[in-house]
C-alpha cells in the first residue's frame, strides 16, 4: 500500500508539469460532466415535478396507485436486501478465504445478473414460471402465482441485485488476505467469534457500500420488473413502472412528481450512508 501511494504521488508530479494546468483542466472536465449528466437531470426532475404547483405534487403522490407502487417497491427492496446480504457475505467469504474446486466458475456465475440484460432476466422467469413455461401449469394447479404477481417482481429484484454485495466485498476481502483471521484462530477464537470480531469489522464499509448500491438498484429496476409485472395499476406496478404509466397517460407533472419521490429515496440512501460514515469516523478519532 505504501509503495502504491508513493507511486501515485510521483506520477502526479510527472503528469502535471504545467503548474496545475492539467489538474485544473481535469477537475473542470469532471465537474462539467457531473453537472451535465447528474445535476441537470435531477434539477429537471424536480422542476417538472413542481411545475404545476405543490398541490398537484401532493395529489400525485397521495394517489392510491402511487402509494401502492411505493409499498411494492419498498417490499421488493426489503426482501431483496437481506437475501443479498446473506448471499454476498457467503460468496465473498467462500471465494476469498477458501480454496475449492469450481471457484472460478462461481466467480463468473456471480456476475451473470450483471452481464445479462434485465429484459432477458425477466423473460427467463416467464419461461420458467409462466403458463407456457416449465413450472407454470404446476403452479397454477396449486393456485400459486409467480409471474404477473408480487412474487415475480420480488424475484426479478433479487436477481438483478444479487451480485451487488458480493462484488463490493470480494476485492476488499481479497486485498485483506486472511492473516487477521489466522491470527485470531491461532489465539483460540472460534469460527463465529473470528467472523464477528475480525472479519466483519474489516469489511463493514464494503458491506455498507454494497447494500446501498443494491438498494438503489432494487428501487430503480425497470426492465426485468416490467416484463414480470403485468402492469396492473395499484397492484403490480413498482415506482419506475408507475412513472412510465403516468407518462403514458399524459400526466407529465404527476409522472415527474413520482419520479422525484424515487430520486428522493436515492438521496436519502446517500445521506444515510454519509451520516453513518461521519459518525463512525468521529468515534474512531
Amino acid at each position: 500500500m505504501q509503495g502504491l501511494a508513493t507511486n501515485h504521488g510521483s506520477a502526479g508530479r510527472v503528469l502535471d508539469p504545467g503548474g496545475g494546468f492539467v489538474r485544473r483542466g481535469l477537475i473542470g472536465l469532471a465537474l462539467c460532466f457531473v453537472a451535465l449528466f447528474l445535476v441537470l437531470p435531477l434539477v429537471a426532475v424536480f422542476h417538472g415535478a413542481f411545475e404545476k404547483g405543490w398541490r398537484l405534487y401532493l395529489a400525485a403522490i397521495a394517489q392510491p396507485e402511487a402509494l401502492a407502487a411505493v409499498k411494492l417497491t419498498l417490499l421488493a427492496t426489503a426482501i431483496a436486501l437481506p437475501l443479498n446480504l446473506l448471499f454476498g457475505l457467503a460468496a465473498g467469504w467462500a471465494i476469498t478465504k477458501f480454496r475449492f474446486r469450481g471457484k472460478n466458475l462461481l466467480v463468473a456465475l456471480i456476475d451473470l445478473p450483471f452481464s445479462v440484460s434485465p429484459v432477458i432476466a425477466g423473460l427467463i422467469f416467464v419461461l420458467l414460471f409462466g403458463m407456457q413455461g416449465w413450472f407454470g401449469p404446476w403452479l397454477a394447479d396449486h393456485d400459486l402465482r409467480v409471474v404477473f404477481a408480487v412474487p415475480g417482481i420480488v424475484l426479478a429484484t433479487v436477481f438483478v441485485t444479487l451480485p451487488m454485495v458480493a462484488r463490493a466485498l470480494i476485492p476488499l476481502m481479497q486485498d485483506q488476505g486472511h492473516d487477521d483471521e489466522l491470527a485470531a484462530l491461532s489465539l483460540g477464537a472460534s469460527g463465529l467469534q473470528t467472523f464477528w470480531r475480525v472479519t466483519l469489522p474489516n469489511i463493514k464499509w464494503g458491506l455498507l457500500h454494497g447494500v446501498i448500491l443494491a438498494s438503489a438498484r432494487a428501487m430503480g429496476e425497470f426492465g426485468a420488473v416490467s416484463v414480470l409485472s403485468g402492469h396492473i395499476a395499484g397492484r403490480t406496478n413498482t415506482l419506475p413502472l408507475h412513472v412510465e404509466a403516468l407518462y403514458n397517460e399524459y400526466q407529465f407533472a404527476a409522472a415527474f412528481a413520482v419520479a422525484s419521490l424515487l430520486a428522493l429515496f436515492a438521496l436519502v440512501t446517500l445521506a444515510l450512508k454519509s451520516w453513518v460514515e461521519y459518525r463512525t469516523e468521529g468515534k474512531a478519532s
Binding site: 416467464v126 403458463m131 413455461g133 407454470g136 409471474v147 404477473f148 402492469h231 395499476a233 395499484g234 403514458n248
Partner: peptide, 18 residues
C-alpha cells in the same frame, strides 16, 4: 383493475399467465 400496454404484448402476457 386495469392493465394497459401494446395489444400484442398484452395478449402475450395473458397467454403467459396474466
Amino acid at each position: 383493475e386495469q392493465s394497459h400496454g401494446g395489444s400484442g404484448k398484452q395478449a402475450r402476457s395473458v397467454i403467459d399467465g396474466l
